[in-house]
C-alpha cells in the first residue's frame, strides 16, 4: 500500500502534459453545433472500426489515458450504441463491415452525431477504389464531423470534440 501511495505522489499530476496541436481543425458548421447542443457538456461515444489499420483505435484509447483524460470534458466511451450520443467511425468501410456499420447506426438512438475519424474514414485514404472497400463512411451514413489525419493525434481529436461541444480549445 505504502509503495502505491509513494508511486502516485512521486508521479504527480500528468494531465495536460502534451504539446498543443499545431493543426487547426475545420470550423464546426452551425447546424452541427446546434445538433450537438442537446447533449450539453457531456458526450457518450461509441467507437466503430470499419476497417482501419488500428492506428486510430490506439489514439482513441490514448484519449482516455491520464495525460489527455477526455473524461474531464464529459467525454466517455459507451459500451453499446444504445447508450451513445455519437458514433466515431474509423476506417474506409470494408465490404464485410458495411452491414455492421448500418446496423450500429440504426441501433443508436436519435438524435445522434456521426464523426468520421482519420483519413480512411473521411475519403478512404490509401484504400480508395479497392475491391474490398465500399466507403467512405458518408456514402453509407450521414456524417456530421470529419477529423482528418493518419492517424490524427489525440490532442487534435480532443480539440475537435471540444469544439463540437462548444468549449474553448
Amino acid at each position: 500500500m505504502f509503495r502505491i501511495i509513494q508511486k502516485s505522489l512521486k508521479t504527480g499530476i500528468v494531465t495536460g502534459n502534451y504539446p498543443a496541436p499545431t493543426k487547426s481543425e475545420r470550423p464546426v458548421p452551425d447546424a452541427v453545433r446546434k445538433k450537438a447542443s442537446v447533449f450539453g457538456r457531456s458526450l457518450a461515444i461509441r467507437e466503430v472500426d470499419t476497417g482501419s489499420c488500428n492506428g486510430c483505435e490506439m489514439e482513441m484509447n490514448a484519449l482516455m489515458n491520464p495525460v489527455y483524460d477526455a473524461e474531464r470534458f464529459g467525454i466517455h466511451i459507451a459500451a453499446s450504441p444504445r447508450h451513445a450520443d455519437a458514433l466515431v467511425v474509423t476506417g474506409p468501410v470494408t465490404v464485410n463491415m458495411e452491414k455492421a456499420l448500418k446496423d450500429v447506426h440504426a441501433a443508436t438512438p436519435d438524435p445522434k452525431l456521426v464523426i468520421a475519424l482519420g483519413d480512411c474514414a473521411c475519403d478512404c485514404g490509401i484504400f480508395k477504389g479497392s475491391y474490398a472497400v465500399t466507403g467512405p463512411v458518408e456514402r453509407h451514413i450521414p456524417v456530421d464531423v470529419k477529423i482528418s489525419g493518419c492517424p490524427p493525434r489525440p490532442s487534435e481529436i480532443l480539440n475537435a470534440l471540444k469544439k463540437l461541444q462548444g468549449r474553448k480549445p
Partner: peptide, 10 residues
C-alpha cells in the same frame, strides 16, 4: 476478416 481491405492486391 471483417476488415479485409485488399492490401495484397493494392
Amino acid at each position: 476478416f471483417w476488415k479485409h481491405r485488399g492490401v495484397e492486391k493494392l
